[in-house]
Amino acid sequence: MSTTRPLVRCPRRAPDEGVISSWDLSIGVDGPGTRFVIFTAGCPLRCLYCQNPETWRMRDGRRITADAVMNEIDRYRRFISVTRGGITISGGEPLLQPRFTAEVLRRCHDTGLHTALDTSGLLGANATDAMLADTDLVLLDIKSFDPAVYRHLTGGPLQPTLRFARRLADLGTPVWIRFVVVPGLTDAPDDVDGLARFVSTLANVERVDILPFHRMAMGKYQRLGLRFPLADVAPPCEVLLNRIHAQFRAHGVVTA
């Protein structure tokens, strides 16, 4: 199992310069409406079901200025606005590059675009209150509520994510929790119930996205010469997904 290095230092860059893997347009899964999604490069975790292994290492990305990112966003601004969408900074882990992430969020927020931050929460301490004030929505991935399972899945600790979730609640920042159902790993009833109970105490959580595990990234792993750790795990069945939805709803949590 890979060890994590949450305190990785980024290469020296200008304050408005970052390292990204790519960008794309998406609908529905990265925030409301059509989203311009920026995938930053670099991540301290190694999640067993990661769908973006090409974003793991910062050295594999490309340097770009906030000006260049805004110029690209402007090409799609009208389309994004019509669909009541916005921009989402994802990764990798965008909080590994907090200055760049904050700058892009600020510029987008100042021009009226809806902003979302997709994060594991491990580096939540890197997000300043000013950054979060420019963030209209946080997509917070909580892989498991069991610390041992979480470490097995990600190589990192659970507690920083829970602390960040509490901080977001204190600030009143809207949050969508994202929970991936991996049969045999994240579907234990007690684990799900613990997460549902925790989420029910956070008044800022608008919904929990119950996401079924899939193996669609296997081709990426093969092209990168990597082994997909969960190649032999089948996606969850409807019965299992329905049970997990019911567990969250039993605690008064809205699911999608």
Score class of each variant (00 low, 15 high):
residue 15 P to A: 04
residue 160 P to Q: 09
residue 236 P to I: 01
residue 100 F to T: 04
residue 15 P to E: 01
residue 133 A to M: 12
residue 181 V to P: 11
residue 21 S to F: 11
residue 222 Q to P: 06
residue 117 L to E: 00
residue 104 V to K: 08
residue 192 V to E: 03
residue 205 V to K: 06
residue 54 E to R: 09
residue 47 C to Y: 05
residue 149 V to A: 12
residue 174 P to R: 09
residue 57 R to E: 15
residue 79 F to E: 12
residue 85 G to P: 04
residue 25 L to R: 10
residue 238 E to D: 14
residue 160 P to R: 10
residue 7 L to T: 14
residue 221 Y to A: 01
residue 2 S to W: 14
residue 216 M to I: 15
residue 117 L to H: 05
residue 201 T to N: 03
residue 241 L to F: 03
residue 89 I to A: 04
residue 86 G to W: 07
residue 224 L to W: 09
residue 3 T to E: 13
residue 104 V to D: 01
residue 163 R to M: 11
residue 158 L to I: 10
residue 116 A to Q: 02
residue 174 P to K: 05
residue 223 R to T: 11
residue 59 R to P: 05
residue 198 F to G: 10
residue 159 Q to V: 13
residue 238 E to N: 04
residue 62 R to Q: 11
residue 224 L to F: 05
residue 173 T to C: 10
residue 115 T to K: 00
residue 47 C to E: 07
residue 45 L to D: 06
residue 35 R to W: 04
residue 119 T to C: 06
residue 61 G to V: 12
residue 234 A to E: 14
residue 21 S to I: 04
residue 5 R to T: 15
residue 65 T to D: 11
residue 166 R to V: 02
residue 142 I to E: 01
residue 177 I to W: 08
residue 189 P to C: 10
residue 51 Q to G: 09
residue 96 L to T: 02
residue 201 T to A: 13
residue 85 G to H: 05
residue 24 D to H: 11
residue 184 G to T: 10
residue 88 T to H: 01
residue 86 G to R: 06
residue 58 M to G: 14
residue 226 L to M: 15
residue 248 F to K: 02
residue 80 I to P: 00
residue 187 D to M: 08
residue 167 R to M: 12
residue 237 C to T: 14
residue 124 G to L: 01
residue 251 H to Y: 13
residue 32 P to Y: 06
residue 239 V to C: 06
residue 203 A to Q: 14
residue 93 E to V: 06
residue 127 A to P: 07
